[in-house]
């Protein structure tokens, strides 16, 4: 009697384990397979890309990519994208983090209004923000500069930065800070020695979002730059009339840096998450 119960339990657990592993694998495939398809297309000759049926393995023909790289202005656009995204990342953390600290650690008049303002920004269809700003930028000489675009991208990224770090911040017990104060810290040193290491995962996550938001942004980039196009704006401009193989190669070029970037910060991000696991 007890034996069968035990065996049953063991069986259930075994099946549960199989179900668990297969779901994990399935979800990984869900993410990876579409990217793989894009890669197959990119690494095939233009003729193959436009033919039917498709093969499921790439033929490692660089025809589509060479065609793509032949497009003038590609490298400059790439450099612009990195530049703008980097500036956006730094600016949104620099102006976002202090606000998050104020939100999570102080009770002050106007706090809820301020939070609402932040949320409102997210509720605004931000691409169209670029239109009135374009006029303003021409007046101030910021039009068609990486810095001007980074300012707009920071407006897109700051609410993300604030919201994400805020939810992590409020998870850090105030006692940790208080303990640091009683142990000889000022508000500032308690922040740098205790709070900062603990919210690094949040800050890192926000930084990634800021970078990615800027890297991926199409509309404002297209409106606000003419000569100094970012990669997305450049692709958008040329993709409308382009054949399939150019579209897919362009898409792949957009994806690859994102893959690398997320891979690069992954270790750091996950190590920090491990520490946050009290």
């Amino acid at each position: 009697m007890t034996d069968t119960v035990l065996v049953d339990a063991a069986n259930t657990r075994k099946w549960g384990r199989y179900l668990y592993i297969s779901s994990v694998v399935l979800l990984c495939a869900w993410v990876l397979v579409p990217i793989y398809f894009l890669m197959v297309n990119t690494l095939s000759s233009p003729e193959t890309v436009n033919s039917f049926p498709k093969t499921l393995v790439p033929e490692f023909d660089l025809g589509s990519l060479t065609f793509f790289a032949g497009f003038a202005g590609m490298l400059t656009a790439l450099k612009n994208s990195v530049l703008v995204a980097g500036m956006t990342m730094v600016m949104s953390i620099l102006i976002g983090a202090p606000a998050v600290y104020a939100l999570s650690r102080f009770e002050f008049r106007g706090k809820s209004t301020f939070r609402l303002l932040i949320l409102l920004t997210r509720a605004f269809p931000l691409p169209l923000l670029a239109l009135p700003l374009a006029v303003m930028f021409i007046r101030t000489g910021l039009d068609d500069t990486a810095f001007g675009l980074a300012l707009v991208h920071t407006t897109l990224a700051v609410p993300f930065a604030v919201l994400i770090t805020f939810s992590l911040f409020s998870g850090i017990p105030i006692e940790l800070e208080e303990a640091a104060w009683t142990l000889g810290c000022t508000r500032l040193t308690a922040f740098t020695m205790v709070v900062l290491p603990l919210i690094m995962p949040g800050i890192t996550a926000s930084a990634i979002f800021a970078f990615v938001i800027s890297w991926n942004e199409v509309f404002a980039a297209a409106v606000l730059t003419i000569e100094n196009r970012t990669l997305t704006a450049f692709l958008l401009q040329n993709l409308d009339t382009s054949p399939l193989h150019l579209k897919f190669a362009g898409g792949f070029i957009l994806v690859v840096p994102a893959l690398i970037f997320i891979f690069a910060v992954r270790k750091y991000l996950f190590a920090m998450w491990g520490i946050a696991n009290r």
Binding site: P173, E175, L176, E178, A179, A180, T182, L183, V194, P197, L198, I275, A276, R278
Partner: peptide
């Protein structure tokens, strides 16, 4: 002074 907190407040990092 030094203080011992109810939830210990041992720094996790």
């Amino acid at each position: 002074i030094a203080m011992v907190f109810q939830n210990y407040a041992v720094f996790p990092h």
